[in-house]
Design a binder for these strands. Structure first.
Lengths: 343, 343
DNA sequence: ATTAGCACTCATGTAAGAGGAGTGCTAACA
DNA sequence: TGTTAGCACTCCTCTTACATGAGTGCTAAT
């Protein structure tokens, strides 16, 4: 266990390093107010903290830097979310200023504002559309061979897709089919559409439609489209200003990973409810060894709907970022709940 | 005027510098095959070329580097578009492999493939939707207060927007209005919709609709939405691999400018038909002083529809990039023409 | 238990010098 | 008159050496 004094020293080291990005030495610590110990005493304590793995040296005679374990302890036991300033709050509130709620825009603005407020990179995952309920299907022929299918959900989300019309189909049949689909599939969550069309709609189609086979096939194909929520990023270039990324190769790897979206996506989509912090090597990704990722979810009711996240250096302002994420996730939850309950 | 020998030397300097990124010295030039001159002679010629402004030194005793004027001459008079390899061609063709033409996807894939083939950053501007003709308007109520308006064009493009329903409107009136709009506005280019609604539709609405005023206002508002084509980027991180951008500050400025989209957008949207090359300071933008931008348009018939572009260092493989852009812009034109004439 | 003192380590910055690639100029040559 | 060899000079780059300073660990005194 750590003594009170060790806790104090660890805390000051982390705080100081987060601020300055410079390894913290015993002498500079001893001169801090709130600490009335000689540098020698601090050196002894630091040696102990190092032995326990909370801090590290960058070379034999350098000051100390928090280790992953150190940051972890700091985040788990010493940190309280920063209270936001009035200024921060008003900026976040401005996200929701416009009256008509176009959700994608809110998400996008959230990402951009979050990165502005933190100077890190922000990532926002839109609300799970696949759980939205179908409101209306519309088929609009574009020319003889192709048509556009449009799906509108109860939250006002619109998906659309072009497709080839089955050969020799007659317009009346399409209309009939669409009517049947709307009647039967109204209120069904998007992810269950494909199921339902076989179980409930197929029979009806068979009764009313000539070109039953190709029609069913076409629509089943349409409904099979995977609905993956888009990721929105903000401040991708902010990382370039961090002193730990002076090395262009590191930056390149990192930026390529971000642009790839693959790794980020897998993390962001599969995280559990609440706020989570992944520090450095905890990310299980070489490229992320010097980065931390903080994720927060937003929900409606009990159900997690989407995620907002901040990616920054391990030397990140955890307190501030967690404070901001907490606040924004609550606001998003509130807005969404209102939107979803309005139906 | 430049003598043949000066032309030769200029060409070799540009080619060599594009390949190696190293200033070219007289001695290494004299050893090139195809050149049987002593280094002293070449030094004399180089001095002349420098005096005329085609090449520069980085310091008093360095080799020569092409100036903007030098690149300009090279591009205008010495360059023929590279013939593509079979491999290049098949990769470009793969963009159009999928049968059903979802245009946004084609654009996106074009950007990504273009950046892969060149290792530079690619920028693609989608076809001008504002000239597409309206095929169908659809209004779908989401809840009591809001509805989604959906616009489908003759090319299968879909725009949608949420809006507040006017207070105390009755459903029948909305339906009637939509019918009138569809009847009257079918085939009208999107950019002219706002005009037409006042000139032709307003009168009809007045006759048939109770809530004439608020209805007209609502729809006019909807149709006023600015339809700006999206920009798609590919290989934003490729710049990080260019040796001229070893400096992190330069890279940051450049990346921020790209992410901003403002400057790029203004250039890309306003360029004339055909292929254009902007070299270094010709871009009138400090940040772009060491970059070149090559743009190409694609069209249907005589009309320019969109733009594809490559952003790279001034030391860019002009010949290859122009070859690729030419080829791709022709292919895009072909596909689009087919798509647009199918109606 | 705390601290003063000291020897030691290592990153950083500066200065000096060697090496090398390149230039401009001059004079000789064809 | 155009071409080339030769040479002095410039300036970048790399290495080495050295001084400085921040920081450490350890020991002994308080």
């Amino acid at each position: 266990m750590l003594t009170d004094r060790q806790l104090l020293i660890l805390q000051v080291i982390v705080d100081d390093f987060i601020r300055s990005a410079q390894p913290v030495g015993s002498r500079s610590l001893s001169k801090k107010e709130g600490i009335s110990l000689s540098s020698a005493t601090i050196r002894n304590e630091m040696a102990d903290l190092e032995e326990m793995g909370y801090i590290e040296k960058t070379h034999t005679s350098s000051g100390r830097v928090p280790s992953v374990k150190g940051y972890r302890y700091y985040v788990d036991h010493m940190l309280s979310p920063q209270r936001l300033t009035q200024h921060d709050i008003s900026i976040i509130k401005s996200i929701f200023a416009e009256k008509i709620v176009e959700f994608e825009k809110i998400i996008q603005r959230s990402a951009s504002i979050l990165s502005d407020l933190t100077n890190y990179t922000s990532i926002v995952l839109g609300p799970a559309v696949s759980e939205n309920k179908l409101k209306r299907i519309q088929i609009i022929p574009v020319n003889k061979e192709t048509a556009v299918a449009i799906f509108v959900t109860d939250t006002g989300h619109v998906e659309h897709k072009m497709f080839s019309l089955p050969a020799s189909v007659n317009p009346g049949d399409i209309e009939k089919t669409v009517n049947i689909l709307n009647e039967r599939l109204n209120g069904v969550p998007l992810e269950e559409l494909n199921d339902k069309i076989y179980k409930e709609v197929a029979v009806l189609l068979k009764q009313h439609i000539q070109n039953y086979d190709s029609m069913l096939h076409t629509f089943a194909q349409l409904l099979k489209m995977p609905i993956t929520e888009k990721l929105f990023f903000g401040g991708k270039t902010n990382m370039l200003s961090q002193p730990e990324f002076h090395d262009i190769d590191k930056i390149r790897d990192l930026m390529m990973m971000i642009d790839q979206e693959e790794w980020i996506s897998s993390i962001i989509r599969n995280n559990a409810k609440g706020i989570h912090v992944r520090i450095g090597s905890e990310n299980n990704n070489k490229i992320m060894d010097e980065c931390s990722l903080i994720t927060a979810t937003y929900s409606v009711g009990e159900e997690k709907l989407g995620t907002i996240a901040i990616l920054g250096p391990t030397r990140m302002e955890y307190s501030r970022v967690i404070g901001l994420l907490q606040f924004l996730s609550r606001d998003l939850t509130a807005v969404l709940t209102k939107l979803y309950q309005n139906n």
